[in-house]
């Protein structure tokens, strides 16, 4: 048993090291992106405090916030996806399953189309996206409460229904947006280009706090995967734990979506890949998902910029979907136990 546990730990550490290495490599490559790409030597010089003023601006003021945002948003969305899949006991669950992405899109659309009193226009869009994202989760949760308790199936169905309704409103607003339609459409594709150190000062603390809460509850999450009744037998306060986890994941998702738009397939695909590698134990899945999600989004950010010479910098949501979609189809075609779900 000890040998098994030891080999499991070694495997975990090896995978973690590989993921971290990939993250650093692609983050470094991402720092060198420019209209005429900077060499590794130039990037290295800048990171060591040298380099020309122009290169320093490119690497430190433009590319670095974007790469850092990719790391934290990727980590946040991946861990949110892992939690949602465990909470709902559904491998198709993602951070957006409660319709929160539609809620965020609605908030962003309102922020872009209308002038809101007392809210400076520069923060209107992310602020409203966050508020509506969170509000959607609360709405879905309250709608799904029956007789003082919330069933997973009801939560899921409420999320789908509310999400569809809000999506229709967003479509209507896009239709009447006129000249500003483009802004709404681009926002909903997801983009890291608005990253700045100012935005990061809000994003990082919220995501880190959410990750911390989720990590602390990863053991309870294992119990909840066995079903509410079994979890209660094991001493887990199911109601409270579920609510705390929902709030934590929604906060992480909301703050991510507020500043980068809707980036799909990170929370859906990454937990599955991680389970294939380390098994279904959330005490391993949750922490590894953090780093794997960060790596995935950093790689996608690099790919989105790599083809900028021919098609321009693509919204990152396109890349995550182009890669994640076919891979998820591949996962679905395999037998369930092979994806590490049971």
């Amino acid at each position: 048993m000890n040998k098994l546990r030891r080999s499991g730990n070694i495997r975990f550490v090896a995978i973690l090291a590989a993921v971290l290495a990939v993250t650093f490599i692609f983050a470094f490559l991402g720092l060198g992106w420019a209209r005429w790409p900077l060499s590794a030597q130039v990037v290295w010089d800048v990171l060591l405090g040298g380099g020309s003023p122009v290169n320093r601006t490119i690497v430190l003021d433009i590319n670095l916030p974007r790469v850092i945002m990719a790391v934290f948003v990727g980590a946040g969305l991946a861990i949110s996806g892992a939690v949602m899949q465990a909470l709902f006991r559904n491998p198709m669950a993602s951070p957006y399953i409660l319709g929160v992405s539609s809620g965020a899109a609605l908030g962003a659309a309102i922020g872009m189309l209308f002038t809101i009193p007392f809210i400076p226009y520069l923060i209107a869009t992310p602020l409203l996206a966050f508020v509506f994202c969170f509000g959607t989760m609360m709405l879905v949760y309250s709608l799904s409460r029956v007789g003082g308790s919330t069933h997973v199936e009801t939560l899921l169905l409420s999320g789908i229904a509310v999400g569809a309704f809000i999506s229709a409103i967003v479509s209507f607003l896009t239709f009447i947006a006129g000249d500003r339609m483009e802004g709404i459409v681009f926002w909903s594709m997801g983009s890291l280009s608005k990253a700045s150190f100012m935005n990061l000062s809000i994003v990082i603390p919220v995501i880190v706090a959410g990750l911390f809460i989720i990590l602390m509850l990863s053991k309870e999450l294992n119990a909840m995967m066995l079903g509410d009744a079994h979890a209660m037998d094991l001493g887990v306060d199911v109601k409270r734990t579920r609510l705390v986890l929902l709030i934590a994941t929604t906060a992480v998702t909301s703050v991510s979506v507020a500043f980068v738009g809707v980036i799909g397939f990170v929370g859906l695909v990454i937990p599955h890949i991680v389970r294939m590698l380390v098994g279904p134990d959330n005490r391993s899945v949750i922490p590894l998902s953090i780093f794997a999600g960060a790596a995935y989004l950093v790689i996608c950010d690099y790919i989105a910029h790599a083809f900028s010479g021919s098609v321009g910098v693509m919204p990152i949501g396109i890349i995550t979907a182009l890669i994640g979609g076919p891979y998820f189809i591949y996962l679905l075609r395999r037998r369930r136990h092979q994806v590490g779900w049971t």
Binding site: W33, A34, R35, W36, S52, P53, V54, N55, T57, I58, I62, R66, E182, F186, S191, S193, K194, S308, G312, V313
Partner: peptide, 20 residues
Amino acid sequence: SLGSIYSGDEVVVGILQLIG
């Protein structure tokens, strides 16, 4: 071409490089 002004970063970075 520096790219599309609507995607932002690539134009800004391109202009910086032209200055450099």
